[in-house]
Structure formats: structure tokens, C-alpha cells
Simulated assay, not measured.
Amino acid sequence: MRKLMIASIALLPLLSGGCVRTVASVVTAPVKVAGKAVDWSTTSQSEADRNYGRKMRKQEEREGRERQKAEKACRKDPNACQPYDGYRAGESPRDDEPR
């Protein structure tokens, strides 16, 4: 009797392995779904850094284009040349500029 009980206990993990995994998957599924929803709805620090870097590069490109345009106008008419007072990357847009 004792040998039969020990044998059945030893075989129990082998026989119920698939069932235990299935139960574990069903139990952990809501947690995984909730985690994915939170991940999709929030911005990680690396994503925020990447987006900020992209924004700053675009602003710097815009400033470069405007500075080149101002320099070209200055070369055409040196008497009307003034210090650059246009768009500067990293500053908030002026009220008279469209957003």
C-alpha cells in the first residue's frame, strides 16, 4: 500500500504537467493583459528621450534654414543687414508665429 502511494505521488507531476501549465496560463493571463494595456498607455523614459531628441533635431534644422535665409538676404543687401532675430531652437514660439 505504501509503495503504491509513493509511486502515485512520484508520477503525479508527470501526469498533471500539462494541466498545471494550462491552469497557470489561465491564472496569469489577466495580469499579462493588464500589463500590456499599461505599457501601451504610458510612455517609457527611453521613448520620451527619443521623441524629445527628434523634436529638437527638427527645431535645429528649422533654425539652420532660417539662419541661412537671413545670411543670404544679408549678402544681397548688406546695408539692411541686422543681427539674426529669428527662430531659435529650444525656445517657445513667439506669439506672432503660427503654431
Score class of each variant (00 low, 15 high):
1 M>R: 10
1 M>A: 11
4 L>K: 09
4 L>N: 13
5 M>F: 10
5 M>A: 13
5 M>T: 15
5 M>S: 15
9 I>P: 03
10 A>E: 15
11 L>T: 12
14 L>H: 09
15 L>N: 03
17 G>S: 08
18 G>Y: 04
18 G>K: 00
19 C>S: 10
19 C>A: 13
19 C>D: 07
19 C>M: 13
20 V>L: 09
20 V>C: 08
20 V>H: 06
21 R>T: 12
21 R>W: 13
22 T>Y: 14
23 V>T: 11
24 A>G: 09
25 S>G: 15
25 S>A: 12
26 V>E: 04
27 V>R: 03
28 T>Q: 11
29 A>L: 11
30 P>K: 04
31 V>M: 12
31 V>H: 12
32 K>A: 12
32 K>L: 13
32 K>D: 15
34 A>H: 15
35 G>W: 09
35 G>Q: 14
36 K>Q: 14
36 K>M: 12
37 A>K: 15
37 A>F: 14
38 V>Q: 08
39 D>V: 06
41 S>A: 13
43 T>K: 12
43 T>H: 05
43 T>P: 01
44 S>Q: 02
44 S>D: 02
44 S>I: 00
45 Q>W: 04
46 S>I: 08
48 A>L: 04
50 R>F: 04
50 R>N: 08
50 R>L: 06
51 N>A: 11
52 Y>W: 08
53 G>F: 03
53 G>D: 08
54 R>L: 08
55 K>C: 02
55 K>I: 02
57 R>T: 15
57 R>G: 06
58 K>M: 11
58 K>Q: 14
59 Q>N: 06
60 E>K: 11
61 E>V: 02
62 R>P: 03
62 R>Y: 11
63 E>D: 07
63 E>C: 06
63 E>A: 07
64 G>F: 13
64 G>Y: 15
64 G>L: 13
66 E>M: 01
66 E>Y: 01
68 Q>T: 14
68 Q>V: 11
69 K>L: 07
71 E>N: 11
71 E>V: 06
71 E>S: 09
71 E>D: 15
71 E>P: 02
71 E>A: 14
72 K>P: 12
72 K>R: 15
72 K>W: 13
73 A>I: 00
73 A>F: 01
74 C>D: 08
75 R>A: 14
75 R>F: 12
77 D>M: 05
78 P>A: 00
79 N>D: 05
79 N>F: 00
79 N>S: 02
81 C>Y: 02
81 C>D: 04
82 Q>M: 07
82 Q>K: 10
82 Q>T: 06
83 P>L: 02
84 Y>G: 02
84 Y>N: 01
85 D>H: 03
85 D>K: 02
85 D>Q: 05
86 G>V: 05
87 Y>W: 05
87 Y>I: 01
88 R>D: 04
88 R>F: 05
90 G>L: 05
90 G>Y: 02
90 G>V: 05
91 E>K: 11
91 E>Q: 10
94 R>N: 09
95 D>I: 06
95 D>S: 06
95 D>Q: 03
96 D>W: 03
97 E>K: 00
97 E>T: 03
97 E>N: 00
99 R>E: 06
99 R>Y: 01
